[in-house]
Structure formats: C-alpha cells, structure tokens
Amino acid sequence: MHECKKIYISVWGDTVNLRELLIGMFLGAITGYVSFTGGLLFLQKFYSDLPKGLLMGYALLFGIIGCLIVGGVAAKVFKAKRIFIEDSSCIDMTTALRELNLNPSREAEYLKSVSQDVKEEMKELQIYQLFSQEKDHKEQRK
C-alpha cells in the first residue's frame, strides 16, 4: 500500500521513479564513456600494433562490458516499478489498448476480416475477446 502513494513517471511505456532514472542514466552514460575510452587508451598503449579497425572493435567490447556491469548494478539497486500479474482475469487490458491509441470498435470491425488461423492463435493467447469487444470479455476482465 505504501508503494501506491508514490508518484511515478511514465517513460517509454513503463513506470519509473524519476530520480532513480536520472541518476541511472547519468551513471550509465559516464560508465559507457569511461569504459570505452579507457579500453581504447589501454589497447593503444599495450597493443599499439593492432590495426585501427580492430583497436576500435575491441574498445567497443570494453565499452559494452562497462554498460552491462552498470546495468546489472542498476537492476540490483533500482527495483522494478511494475505490477506483474500472471492471472489474466485480474487485469484491465482496455487500459493497454487506450495507451496504444486504439479504437476498440474499429479493432472489432478489423478483426472480422482476419483469417481463421490468426483468430485461433489470438484465442489461445486469451486476447481475442479483448479485440472483438465481446460481452464475455468485459465480464471476465472486470
């Protein structure tokens, strides 16, 4: 309950804590820069006979490793601010449709021209009723 009182920010389709995001992005950018340029300096000093293309390629690997490390640390420190629900009946998927700027009645119309194999696939994924706007769906999701 305490979590719900916090103010979250919507960034790139997910919820974040703005302060954590800004700290993370700043540290990520700095780490990426330092690991790439540091790797390049190291290679230039100790493997100066390498061709330039290879030198840059290996420096890129240093940079990427730096990014992976800072990403891993950030994943440990900053916990996910999303609620993951396994049971489809507990979630109102119409919110997702709204966020994706979809018109439910138009989607229901489009669905009529979809081939049977795709409809079957959608049924197995439990999203057919969401797009077809059938009554059953509303009852199930609410």
Binding site: D14, V16, G24, S35, F36, L60, A75, K81
Partner: peptide
C-alpha cells in the same frame, strides 16, 4: 518482468548510446 526495472534498462541503454555514438 519481475526482476529487471525500466530504470536499469535505461541505465544500460544510456551507456550503450554513448558507447555506440562515440564509436
């Protein structure tokens, strides 16, 4: 979904952005 926060993904992405652009 359970373990990887958006903040950590964007932290890594910011780093990759800098590395690839600098590269």
């Amino acid at each position: 979904m359970r373990n990887i926060s958006q903040e950590s993904l964007l932290t890594m992405f910011a780093g990759l952005f800098v590395v690839l652009c600098y590269f």
